[in-house]
Nucleic acid binder design. Structure first.
Lengths: 131, 131
DNA sequence: TATGACTTTAGAGTAACTCTAAGTCAAGTA
DNA sequence: TACTTGACTTAGAGTTACTCTAAAGTCATA
């Protein structure tokens, strides 16, 4: 059994965020002990992991809530949930190729600076260069 | 020469965002015509591209502003700018591997749903399943 | 028993957009 | 010539998803 703090540490999400997600209704299944303290079971962690995954791919909180409501409804919604996951996956793949582009640009910039430093030359690319 | 709208379309960023960035002081070099309209030159587009790149890797606007101020200062700041780009690149690489993890999870989920549908079986993973 | 470490909540604060309203200007049309 | 349309401008309000703070409850240890 894990407290909010444990979950936060284990999944590398802030405690604030876990509580915010809880308040947003993302974990309707989480039990509380006698002192009103949330205790996540092993199985629940998988769920938090999915929420983190959806968020980090940029799915908004309203859509995550909708996905959760489909899960609550039960097996009749499996097809619809499958579609959501598939769309999300496609979105993630686009992000991957976008990130590759950005990495290329950063590599280019890095090399550019390396050359500048090595040759002690002027930064002619910089549109505001005063030199 | 490109208006804000042109830049927005070319770099796939909203016009609002370009104006917001302009207001934030990200494009101190952009000229205006007689009617006070911003006109970006070809060279300036490269700059907007860098800003987009830094933002999409999660660099905050204050840090981007700082980078720009270093650029304005001129060639004496090249080493410091190099360090920023290098750190940003490392951050992007971490994001890449994080995104790979998320993609793996999404693939796993996708296959799980595919199997459920194919075999018409129960969703035993779902912690809120009512079936 | 009190100190400290933990939890909870409501609600204020923040970053980075995102949108709206009101205004200027130039070009096209009746 | 007057009017409408459309592109651009600004200030500032609104939104999302956190992020933080404050107040209060519980429990172990000194």
């Amino acid at each position: 059994m894990y407290t909010v703090k444990d979950v936060a540490k284990k999944l590398e999400v802030s405690e604030h965020t876990i509580r915010f997600w809880a308040k947003s209704g993302f974990f309707p299944f989480v039990k509380r002990n006698n002192n009103n303290i949330r205790l996540f079971e092993e199985k629940d962690l998988e769920w938090v992991r999915i929420v983190k995954c959806l968020r980090s791919v940029g799915i908004d909180n309203k859509s995550i809530k909708r996905y959760i409501e489909l899960c609550i409804k039960g097996d009749s919604t499996i097809k619809e949930r499958y579609d959501i996951i598939k769309k999300t996956k496609e979105k993630a793949q686009e992000q991957m190729s976008e990130l590759e582009n950005q990495l290329n640009l950063l590599n280019f910039k890095e090399n550019y600076y390396v050359e500048l430093i090595k040759n002690n030359s002027k930064d002619t690319w910089n549109p505001m260069n005063k030199n």
